[in-house]
């Protein structure tokens, strides 16, 4: 970490090949993220949010510029080192939950800890704790197909949080949820951010998410349009907007 900064992005450019030419998804991005942030990259579809999140999550590499995550430069990491970085330090929450259909809730949440080779007893406790954080202690044996969308996303949050990562990257986490469920999971994440000091970075264009963000980075056509911190304008208990 450099001066408490978890992520440092300098002059980031990302191109994708397209036909005979190339498409530039991100243009000259400069950003930093600090520990405990609850921030989001917002913008319309195709603005480059997911690409930015993928690069921060070491699932993709920059075409130009540097991205340092917890001191590791993403562009120079080997596949193994990138996997290690994700395994130890980064949790992912996906729009479509991406739960393993053949595992039950407990096994889904346990999966990242198996990769960390955590001892059984410790692992079991960590999974139960994570399920308690998201209020799913009674669904331990359920299969993903037996869960509602909100419950599935909460399992996904528990899976991202169970290893107590420094960073959680959430890509459109509420896109498939109704308003009540969206608020519920956002409150859960906000609480985890507050209690565990985990950094949450969202990619979203959902207003329900945006109103919870403490920092909003607007992206359009691959460029940062604005980067503003906001105190929040909603009722922290109900999660509903204060008019």
């Amino acid at each position: 970490m450099e001066n408490g900064k978890l992520i440092t992005i300098q002059n980031l450019v990302k191109h994708y090949p397209m036909g005979k030419g190339r498409f530039t998804a991100l243009k000259d991005i400069n950003l930093t993220f600090e520990k405990g942030e609850f921030s989001g990259v917002v913008g319309p579809s195709g603005s480059g949010k997911t690409t930015l999140l993928n690069i921060m999550g070491s699932l993709d590499v920059p075409s130009e510029g540097t991205v340092r995550v917890l001191g590791s430069e993403i562009g120079t990491l080997s596949h193994k080192a990138a996997a290690r970085l994700r395994n130890h330090n980064i949790g992912f929450i996906f729009q479509t939950y991406n739960l393993m259909p053949v595992y039950n809730v407990f096994e889904n949440v346990e999966f990242p800890l198996l990769l960390l080779k955590m001892p059984v007893k410790e692992r079991r406790q960590a999974v139960l704790d994570a399920l308690e954080w998201v209020g799913l202690s009674d669904k331990v044996k359920s299969r993903p197909k037996q869960l509602s969308g909100g419950e599935s996303q909460r399992v996904s949050i528990a899976r991202a949080m169970v290893k107590r990562p420094h960073i959680v990257l959430a890509d459109e986490p509420t896109a498939n949820l109704d308003a009540d469920n969206s608020h519920h999971i956002l409150q859960t994440m906000e609480k985890l951010n507050r209690d565990l000091k985990t950094t949450f970075i969202f990619a979203t264009h959902d207003d329900k998410v945006i109103q919870y963000l403490k920092r909003k980075i607007s992206l359009a056509d691959g460029k940062v349009q604005s980067d503003e911190k906001s105190p929040g304008n909603r009722n922290p208990e109900s999660g509903h907007e204060i008019q």
């Binding site: 699932l59 596949h79 996997a83 994700r86 395994n87 992912f92 996906f94 991406n98 990242p112 990769l115």
Partner: peptide, 12 residues
């Protein structure tokens, strides 16, 4: 893709 995101290497 999820396995890789959760920390598995391609080899794994």
């Amino acid at each position: 893709g999820t396995d890789i995101a959760l920390g598995m290497t391609r080899g794994q």
